[in-house]
């Protein structure tokens, strides 16, 4: 029974991947670098008192979460590909490096 539980846990982890939380606070991404695997998700949080955004024009992982008001979470799933950078479209000094393993 234990074995079945372990196998099912392993299967669900590999199916759904890990979730990485990136907070947007003080006009910075925290952390500013994450290491992920394809299939993992990234949850963008916004702890600043104003809207943020996160986007990349990367060929494999292009996404744009749109306007993200304070307190709202947005989730994206990482696809296979090369490392990429994420910026906030409003505050371009914010930079997140995503390393794909």
């Amino acid at each position: 029974m234990k074995q079945i539980l372990l196998i099912s846990l392993f299967t669900s982890l590999s199916l759904f991947g890990a979730n990485h939380i990136v907070n947007q606070k003080g006009k910075t991404f925290i952390p500013h670098e994450i290491t992920v695997h394809p299939g993992d998700t990234i949850t963008f949080k916004n702890s600043d008192p104003f809207a943020h955004n996160a986007y990349t024009d990367d060929e494999d992982n292009e996404f744009d979460i749109g306007m993200q008001p304070t307190g709202e979470d947005k989730i994206i799933t990482v696809k296979p590909g090369n490392n990429f950078s994420v910026e906030c479209a409003i505050h371009p000094n914010m930079l997140l490096e995503v390393i794909i393993k």
């Binding site: 006009k27 008192p49 505050h91 371009p92």
Partner: peptide
């Protein structure tokens, strides 16, 4: 300072 922040009194944001 939500926009005019830092030594240059601009955080470079687009508003």
């Amino acid at each position: 300072t939500e926009c005019h922040d830092g030594f240059n009194f601009s955080d470079g944001s687009f508003q």
